[in-house]
Amino acid sequence: MANYIKDIRAKVGHMPLIMVGVGAAYIKDKKVLLQERADTGGWGLPGGYMEYGETIEETLKREFKEDAGLEIVSYKFLKNFDQEFFTYPNGDQTQVLTPFYLVTQVKDGPADYDQAETTAIDFFDFDQLPDIHFESHRRILNYVKTLV
């Protein structure tokens, strides 16, 4: 059911929805991997919304592959973020429950991300981050920084 969110929005319009979004941080040499988003041009953490029928772990692996172009080998759960409220430019309102993970190993090979979702990926020092598009990603990055 690849258009689950669009199907729901067609029925409920812009009313607030509780959604599940899964996110991840991959840290290498004390730098965090970020994606430059194709939709906003801003930078953020890889992740996205769960599709109907998926498990959280399936969503994690699919979204990380789409956004960062890397296949997850191992990971560990860090924390649930549940106070993330967002109003999209079109008026859609959401409260997002985000199980957040630390990716501990990826499969070797070049990054092959979905260019419809990501225009670039790069590693950044936590003290020299680019412009992070979403406030929720800034809060999560501040949390992850305490773990490094």
Rank of each mutant, 00 (worst) to 15 (best):
Q35A: 10
Q83K: 15
D112N: 14
S74K: 08
K79F: 10
N80C: 05
S136M: 08
I5G: 00
T94W: 06
K65S: 07
V148G: 01
A68D: 02
A116I: 03
K31S: 05
L34C: 02
Y143I: 08
S136N: 09
G23W: 05
F86Y: 15
Y4Q: 04
E117H: 14
N80G: 02
I72F: 01
V103I: 15
T40N: 12
G53S: 11
W43R: 00
R138L: 05
I72C: 03
T87F: 00
I18E: 13
P16N: 09
V20E: 15
G47M: 03
N90L: 11
P46M: 06
L147F: 04
L129T: 00
G41E: 12
Y49Q: 06
F124R: 02
K6I: 09
T118L: 08
I8N: 03
E51Q: 14
F85Q: 10
P130S: 04
I8L: 13
N90T: 14
L78K: 08
G109H: 11
K61L: 09
A68I: 05
I121H: 02
Y88R: 14
N90A: 12
E58V: 06
L60W: 13
V103N: 00
T119A: 10
E57V: 13
V32I: 14
L70Q: 04
T98P: 12
P16Q: 11
Q105C: 08
E51N: 15
L97N: 15
Y101R: 04
E63W: 09
G23R: 10
V20S: 10
L147C: 04
F86E: 06
Q128H: 13
E135T: 10
Y143E: 08
Q128A: 14
A38E: 06
G109N: 12
G48S: 08
I5K: 07
M1E: 08
V106M: 06
T40G: 10
R37Y: 12
V106S: 06
A111L: 07
Q83T: 14
I121G: 00
Q128P: 02
P89S: 13
M1V: 05
E63A: 09
D114K: 06
F124V: 02
G91T: 14
I140L: 01
E36G: 02
R9H: 05
I121S: 01
D112G: 01
D112I: 13
N80Y: 15
L60A: 04
D92A: 14
A10P: 04
D82F: 11
W43A: 02
D114M: 03
A120C: 01
H137D: 15
K28R: 14
K31G: 04
L17E: 10
